[in-house]
Design a protein around this nucleic acid. Structure first.
Lengths: 249, 249
DNA sequence: GGCTGTTTAATTGTCAGACAATTGGCTGTC
DNA sequence: GACAGCCAATTGTCTGACAATTAAACAGCC
């Protein structure tokens, strides 16, 4: 049953799955060295290029890293938050752009998750988080700041809020969502945004966090969400009007 | 500057990055066919195996799919939620197991995100969601249900709750977190859990959802979180006691 | 003996050419 | 016009080879 049960998968996929399984189930531990390509080839009864394709698949998921030289080979990676982040952001970005997700839907999800951090962040925030948030607010108040830098500062502000919850799992999930949405948000609200308004809303959130008032913090985030969605709606309406007035370009 | 600026990356990584960039930035659209391997090889000045390794990397991220035959080739994938899901679960699972995340931390994150869905779920839940939840509660009340099936039903229950929020982005994020945590939860609470207690808590959550009472729904989830964490702590304490009584096994 | 420079072996990275397998399209026949 | 068989394009795989890299083993010198 086993040889004929996989009629459509290629060997490199099979081998990649087998190795991935060995890693996920703990048969291969972090730092372990996989057999050399030649050994794997012999073991699975395939040629080296086929094994290499399988290894590249795993490398693409940051499950292994390879090293040349005498003591080289493929090693099981310690999957860091950073590496996982990068992938999640790429995936989320594509997911948003390819599935015609309404801005409103993405925005709603993002702020819902951020509000989930609020109670924890209020309970555990430390001086450094408050400092970061205040610093970013100060940067955002600078009229000379470029649009790109304003956006980056915006991300940093929200990141500090999430980090204040001091839960790495939550930070991982949230940062992925926030950063994946950033290009989308920029595209829509880049030119139209009222910086003073945003700075005021950020200030309210920061104050609530300092006062450890979770309810106020959530309310501040909700206000920010509403403003963002309203702004997006206005921008879209304006674009639609323009498109009607001047159909083709 | 360009040829010498990448001293340590191999060609297949470079090519994979270039193609990934083309997809992410929209230069290659969903359904587009990439050049054939031979054409890509010529284009980048490398051999076919090298190109193939690059393509396998992209395939591992579900960015492309390949097809044999006359009209075959590599095509830009439509990144579905399902495909993204699978990857996220694999990544999250490894992240939890490799980073020594405390059960409490993971649990806290999971329920915080789930509570974030509560207001939306209460506002938008439909008959089908309530039906699913009630059905799963009924299954969970069956004493003959195996532990595995009980766990699966537990996941289905929470999944229905999240889906009731009717926000695909939220569902995507949450389902990943919930399913990634499941093995961890099973390992800890498998034998010790008091099914009647869990069923009662699930019932409270379902009732709150039906009544569209977001506050009560969040409270129910918080109670479930507390119970889960207490249970885990008890299990860990018992294991520690056993280990002390009988140090080596 | 201890340090230094060189060799060496193991391993990955890459190449070239070839053949098998698959699949859609084309052509010829009835 | 319908159908069968051939054909060409493309991916999947193999073989064998060489280049690049790295650490360890080794030889030589002080």
């Amino acid at each position: 049953m086993s040889p004929a049960s996989t009629p459509k998968t290629d060997r490199s996929t099979e081998i990649a799955s087998a190795l991935r399984d060995a890693i996920v189930t703990g048969r291969l531990l972090v730092g372990d060295r996989l057999p050399s390509e030649a050994e794997l080839a012999e073991q699975y009864g395939v040629s080296r290029p086929t094994v290499r394709e399988a290894l590249k698949r795993l490398a693409a998921q940051s499950l292994i890293r390879t090293q040349r030289g005498a003591t080289g080979g493929a090693f099981v990676n310690h999957l860091s938050y950073e590496a996982a982040h990068g992938q999640q952001i790429t995936t989320s970005t594509l997911l948003l752009s390819m599935n015609a997700i309404a801005f409103e839907t993405a925005c709603e999800a993002r702020f819902a998750m951020e509000r989930a951090c609020a109670p924890l962040a209020c309970a555990r925030r430390e001086a450094q988080h408050l400092t970061t948030m205040r610093d970013e607010i100060a940067r955002q108040s600078d009229a000379a700041l470029s649009d790109e830098d304003f956006c980056a500062s915006d991300v940093a502000f929200h990141r500090a809020l999430v980090d204040a919850a001091q839960n790495p799992v939550l930070s991982y999930q949230l940062a992925g969502a926030v950063e994946a949405m950033q290009p989308l948000m920029n595209m829509i609200t880049f030119t139209a945004r009222d910086r003073a308004r945003i700075v005021a809303l950020h200030g309210a959130v920061a104050e609530a966090l300092e006062a450890q008032d979770a309810r106020a913090c959530e309310a501040g985030l909700t206000a920010l969400e509403r403003y963002t969605i309203d702004l997006a709606a206005a921008v879209m309406a304006r674009r639609a009007a323009k498109a009607t007035a001047r159909p083709a370009t």
